[in-house]
């Protein structure tokens, strides 16, 4: 993006107070808030405010970010109590402020606003999020046919950017870290509902800590910035799993 020094210099003196959760292992026993005054620029996202702090006020502040266009999934944080992508949340949304920025809830904090997401990656692997086929792989001369309708059947669940806002919004996950969680189940469904997939993920989904752990609070869906609707994915699999328990020959 355009650098900001010049713009800030020209801007009015309006500022907004940003309260940032700081946690430095070895120094802090638990997170503490540190306050910064940040120029209130009309076009600035919360992430721009954080970068201003890091570049101009305090180089020791740590947070993750990358694409700044809402697709890499790095910059999820808790902004005034809600899980948000900070690149797509504008400072001006918070009027006079202050804005309180904390790490995503539900995850161990590594440093400042950086959380440990290895648990999610292990869960993602566990649902076998890849196309499962039987038999010989055909030669690379033709694609598997898939109509636009068949694509539409799973497309929505393939839009997950793994930002983990849904885990942070989910009270079940926050209370029980063993819960498989919204994104992992949505991605399992992304493959279950793909007409090209021949796999079966019943063994990992039909579990107390998997779909049956969900109490359908629905907050994952409200938090999702990409309209994946993981709550729907989970409830649909509950129905699938229930039908399979009653009718053993029914699949998916």
């Amino acid at each position: 993006m355009t650098d900001t020094t010049e713009a800030v210099r020209r801007a009015s003196t309006r500022t907004i107070r940003v309260e940032v959760s700081r946690y430095r292992p070895g120094e802090d026993a638990e997170p503490v808030f540190q306050e910064y005054e940040v120029p209130l620029m009309a076009d600035w996202a919360v992430l721009d405010g954080l970068n201003y702090i890091k570049d101009r006020l305090d180089g020791s502040l740590s947070f993750r970010w990358s694409c700044r266009m809402g697709v890499c999934g790095s910059c999820g944080m808790n902004v005034n109590g809600e899980p948000r992508l900070t690149c797509g949340t504008f400072l001006s949304e918070y009027g006079e402020g202050p804005v309180r920025i904390e790490p995503l809830k539900g995850f161990p904090v590594i440093r400042d606003l950086v959380v440990d997401i290895d648990d999610f990656l292990a869960k993602l692997s566990s649902v076998r999020p890849w196309l499962i086929r039987e038999g010989e792989e055909p030669p690379l001369t033709a694609e598997y046919a898939q109509t636009p309708e068949q694509l539409e059947a799973y497309k929505q669940y393939s839009m997950c950017i793994n930002c983990l806002l849904c885990y942070s919004a989910c009270p079940v996950y926050v209370l029980d870290p063993d819960f498989l969680g919204p994104a992992a189940i949505a991605l399992a469904q992304r493959y279950n509902l793909d007409s090209r997939d021949m796999g079966d993920r019943f063994d990992v989904l039909n579990l107390e800590d998997s779909v049956w752990g969900c109490t359908f609070v629905g907050e994952c869906t409200s938090a999702c910035p990409k309209h994946v609707d993981p709550a729907e994915a989970i409830q649909r699999y509950k129905l699938t799993a229930a039908l399979r328990s009653v009718l053993p020959w029914s699949r998916r």
């Binding site: 946690y23 292992p25 802090d28 997170p31 440990d116 009270p171 907050e219």
Partner: peptide, 19 residues
């Protein structure tokens, strides 16, 4: 490494209107 693990919040349902 150590990392900070927030305590489980017994009153989680009071945290937001939706909950």
């Amino acid at each position: 490494p150590g990392g900070y693990r927030p305590r489980r919040d017994a009153f989680w349902f009071a945290r937001s209107r939706a909950y």
